[in-house]
Amino acid sequence: MSIKNAITACALLFAALANTAFAELTTEQEAAKTRGIILYNQYKAISAAPFLRIAAEAGDHEAQYYLGESLRRKKHYMNPEARKWYEASAAQGDLYAMIQLGRSKKDFCTFSNDCPPDQKPPIEWLNQAKHMAMPKAIQGDAEAMYVMYELTFDEEWLEKSAVAGNALAQYWMGIGYQEGEGFFLPWRRAKAIEKCFKASAESGYPKSMMEYAAILFEKGDIEGFRHWNEQAALAGYASTVYGYGSDLAHQPDTYGFPFDIIKGYALIYSLRELDGGGGILDLAERKLQKISDTMTPEQIAEAKEFAKTWKATHAPLSFFPDKLSR
């Protein structure tokens, strides 16, 4: 799979079940939505909310969903404003919004015992999502099959989605096999795990790229390990950008990456924008100090310019959190 195709596949994670998401938005509203989702995927839910609100108020169901997510995560429970945006998204057929409404156990109004009388119970949202997803799943829609898995936790739907090519389903199948699910002879389990992660990696999912890379490393395929590390970094996976940059700067030189201290410093430097969650900022700052100790001021200046170019020409940094957060 080409680098361009891998990045494109990762970008599709931002547009699940939103075939016409941008059609009704102005250029400015589209830009705000994109910026909001980028920030959300960098664990900056509070910073994301104002951007998402612009597109949500314009009627975009995906922006409404992510705004609901941002507001819920900020409060750590289903609060009235979050519910408002989930319901607006669900009213447009967004299955993810229906699922979150159906899973809400900590609704603020239940604590105060003043829920609106017309507020739909969680089970009704789940039943509505099933009613909408089932026909698509039966027709072979890979994402609808995955949604059915989230709704029912029936492993058969997860397997069907994975077989149909859903990268996220393939990833979770691999994780499940790693944790002992399924019945295999030991050597067949290992092959099944590798098959799942390889398929998901080739579909562009960065977390699977790193799982598959680790398998290749254990098998002694260091070149394959380096390849998938680079692919995950090109896709913007923040954790791998850190590792890849460190490897290029030979801080340390563990996997035989070619020495490129300018690019290595630049990649670590680019992580300084991740000042939300994820816990990577402190690591990046310490690594930058180690790398800069071996560089001239001119090299550091060149690396900072390289970082600007990289950001402008590559996928945005992301931790790739699951769209259906808990």
Rank of each mutant, 00 (worst) to 15 (best):
I222P: 00
R53W: 10
L67M: 08
E285A: 06
N113W: 06
A199M: 14
S2A: 13
G279S: 12
L17R: 02
A90T: 04
A233S: 13
C115Q: 05
Y255M: 11
G224A: 12
S200F: 10
V241I: 15
A90H: 01
A88H: 00
L281D: 06
F14M: 03
G277R: 02
T254Q: 15
M134W: 08
E81W: 08
T296F: 10
E150K: 05
F22E: 15
L216N: 13
G278Y: 10
A169T: 00
P258D: 11
R286A: 15
R103Q: 12
G220E: 07
E305Y: 03
F108C: 00
L216Q: 12
I46Y: 00
F320Y: 08
L324P: 07
E30L: 05
K287C: 13
A82D: 07
G224T: 04
E285D: 13
L158S: 09
G204A: 12
L95Q: 09
T240D: 10
P321N: 09
E285I: 12
A91Y: 00
K136D: 07
D141G: 05
E124Q: 08
I280E: 13
R189N: 10
A18Y: 03
F197Y: 15
Q128N: 12
T8W: 03
H61G: 01
G93L: 08
F111A: 07
I193G: 13
Y66N: 10
E194Q: 15
P297S: 03
K4Q: 14
Y65E: 04
E30R: 04
E194V: 08
K290P: 00
S104K: 06
G36Q: 07
Y43N: 09
V147L: 08
L95F: 04
R326Y: 11
F197G: 15
P121E: 12
D221N: 14
A45Y: 14
S47Q: 15
P116T: 09
L158A: 08
M134K: 05
V241L: 13
M173H: 04
A21S: 02
A91G: 00
L234S: 02
N79K: 01
G36P: 01
E218I: 03
T296Y: 04
W85Y: 11
E87M: 14
A49L: 12
T296I: 06
D247L: 12
M134Y: 09
D141N: 13
I291F: 09
C196A: 15
Y244E: 11
I175W: 09
D118N: 11
D114T: 10
Y265I: 02
M98C: 10
I300E: 06
T294R: 06
D94T: 05
W125C: 13
W85C: 07
W228A: 09
Y177S: 10
F319P: 00
A9S: 11
D94A: 12
